[in-house]
Design a protein around this nucleic acid. Structure first.
Lengths: 107, 107
DNA sequence: TCGAATGTTTGACGAGCGTCCAACTGTTGC
DNA sequence: GCAACAGTTGGACGCTCGTCAAACATTCGA
C-alpha cells in the first residue's frame, strides 16, 4: 500500500536546501542515496551496500537524518520500514538537483 | 591579471562531490556561494552579505573550506585576495549541478 | 620609515556529529 | 505465550566544526 503510516518528515515546501546538502555531505548517506536512486522501496538493512561494517543503530541514525532533511520517506509496515527517495517532491522543490547529483555521485 | 599566484586548490579531477556538498551544507558558506554566483572576483570582505556579525577570521576559515573543496579559487594580488567561483571546473566535473544549485539557493 | 590595511594562523572553547553498545518497542510466527 | 525479528532510542566516547580573540605576515600609502 502507498498510504500506510509514515514516519515524520518535512512538508515539501519546508525542505531546506542547506539542510539537504548537509545531509548529503556524508559518505555513508551518499551511499544510501545512491541505493535509493532506483526509485524502489528499501528495507533498513544495508547489506550489500558496502555498509556492513556499520552498526545497525548507526545506519538507523543516518536514515533519520535523510528523512528529517526531506530526502527520503519512510513507510511503516509491520515490523519493517520501507525507505524510498522523495523524487517527486525534491524535483518540485529543487528542479534539476537530483538529475545532476545522482550521475555525479555514481561516478 | 589572470595568472598571478593562486592559493592551493584541488585539481579539477580531484574535486569530490561529498566534500563539495559538505562545504555547501553550511548557511554561511551558502551565502558566500550565492555572492560568487555572478562570476566576478570578490575580496574577502563580507560587507553587505549579511555576514557582518562574523569575525573576519571566521570568514577566512569558511573561504578556506570552499577553496579546499574545489568550489572557489583565490588569486593573490598584493595585500588583497580575490575569490571567484570555479564555474568551468565544476561544470566539467559535475554537469548541471551549479545550474540546479544556484537558483534553488537564491529562492 | 612607519603606520594602516588586508587577510591568515594559532589556540581555545562549546556544540554537534558519527559511532558503538545495550536496552527497549513493536511485530511475526510457532 | 514466547522467542526470534526489525528497527529505534538513550547514553557514552572521541572527533570535527563553527566561532572568537589575539598574534602574525605582508603590502600599500603617506
Amino acid at each position: 500500500m502507498s498510504d500506510t503510516e509514515r514516519l515524520p518528515q518535512p512538508a515539501t515546501a519546508d525542505i531546506d536546501l542547506v539542510t539537504v546538502l548537509h545531509a548529503l555531505g556524508d559518505p555513508v548517506r551518499m551511499t544510501l542515496l545512491l541505493s535509493y536512486a532506483d526509485g524502489a522501496e528499501h528495507s533498513c538493512d544495508p547489506h550489500g551496500l558496502g555498509l556492513d561494517h556499520l552498526h545497525k543503530s548507526t545506519v538507523s541514525h543516518h536514515m533519520r537524518v535523510l528523512r528529517e532533511a526531506g530526502v527520503t520517506t519512510t513507510r511503516v509496515a509491520g515490523r519493517n520500514r520501507f525507505v524510498s527517495l522523495r523524487r517527486t517532491d525534491l524535483d518540485a522543490r529543487f528542479p534539476g538537483l537530483l538529475d545532476a547529483l545522482l550521475p555525479a555521485a555514481a561516478s
